[in-house]
Design a protein around this nucleic acid. Sequence first.
DNA 1: ACCTGAACACCGTTCAAGT
DNA 2: ACCTGAACACCGTTCAAGT
Lengths: 221, 221
Amino acid sequence: MHSGPKHTGRTGRPPRLSQETIIFAAQDLLAAEGTRGLSMRRLARELDSTPMALYHHVRDKDDLLLLLLEEHARTIPRPALPEDPRDRMITAGQLLHDVLAGCPWIVEVLASDDLMAKSALWIVEAIVDSAVECGLSPEGAVDAYRAIWYYTAGELLIRVSRERRTAEASRPSHRDQTFATLSPDAYPRLSSLAGQWPELTRRDTHRQSLEALVDGLLARV
Amino acid sequence: MHSGPKHTGRTGRPPRLSQETIIFAAQDLLAAEGTRGLSMRRLARELDSTPMALYHHVRDKDDLLLLLLEEHARTIPRPALPEDPRDRMITAGQLLHDVLAGCPWIVEVLASDDLMAKSALWIVEAIVDSAVECGLSPEGAVDAYRAIWYYTAGELLIRVSRERRTAEASRPSHRDQTFATLSPDAYPRLSSLAGQWPELTRRDTHRQSLEALVDGLLARV
DNA sequence: ACCTGAACACCGTTCAAGT
DNA sequence: ACCTGAACACCGTTCAAGT
């Protein structure tokens, strides 16, 4: 609303584009079509502009992704965490997961850049802090955080690609074919589970595994 | 060496290309330049051929990746596993990791397709089987396998991108900048660790975390 | 059967120019 | 300051044609 241009330009029409409008358009594109839908050219088209106009407001595509990351991190709620350090560790880990599950494109960015949005670092702080309070050394607490982050990132990345794949639903799934032709002698467990495999792997078991991981990590003090 | 063409062609010169030569060239490309180096056009250029010639031996790029996956899986050794089911579970999990760590491009393929090469399924069988022997239900064993797989995939994916990033080493790492400007009041743990963060996160802690995860999963019987 | 060339519909980004 | 157009160096893939 306070859309007065910041420059004291004595000439010319007001800018048509801004970081803000670009970010909003990019969010729409991501929500509608996922990471694959977001390209500089496509974004420009959506804004009735040219690819190069964007580069006036954003350094490059990576910079745009960073801005999107910060924007999302700003919107996440910040609930009170449990007192008990083990519970706090699990709750924070769950939060890390939930915050990202809502927009999984972010995980691809996070994984591909190893960067954390500053506005989400309080979750990392909470995990490391509760781990220390549980008796881990500072180094051990960082290791524990990393294990949780790897597990979370893997879960989200694989879930995203599974959903993308089943959405496209092109061929009869290489995996199902593989399972169908499994020799019961060589693979007794897998072939006896072959029929249930799809539904078994689709279940949401994140919470239980997170608890198991945390308990396992804390058992080593 | 047994390079006789399979067709009984009564005409024409022998085929210049074959799945075999294509796969070898693709492996070289991947080894030399990673996933980003592998494109159909680039591969054709490397083979002194045209992009379209490849499509005669391979359905599309995904098919080529699948062939590469199978080829790699065939080469992995198959060591004897420990008798003790917990040890076997950990050893198999470690194996899953090690087999993939050697060619991390594979993880990107695996994650993006949720497919397992048939020749590597014995590792999955070993994990699920040992989990059942440890007292988990078949469903619980699958859940345990998935937790291990998510953790492993996350670790590898993030490691690959970290290595790629530090190799390119363009800017002074957004993450380091973020850590440097952390307020000690709001982030006491993280800011006290800020200086050590790079080396702490570079350490290989896979084995310990895997053991923690397995023990945590087995503790829930 | 095996390969080529031209084409289609895309990418991210640079550079020189317009207002 | 802000935007445009043309260009560069790429993608995966289809289609029609050559031998």
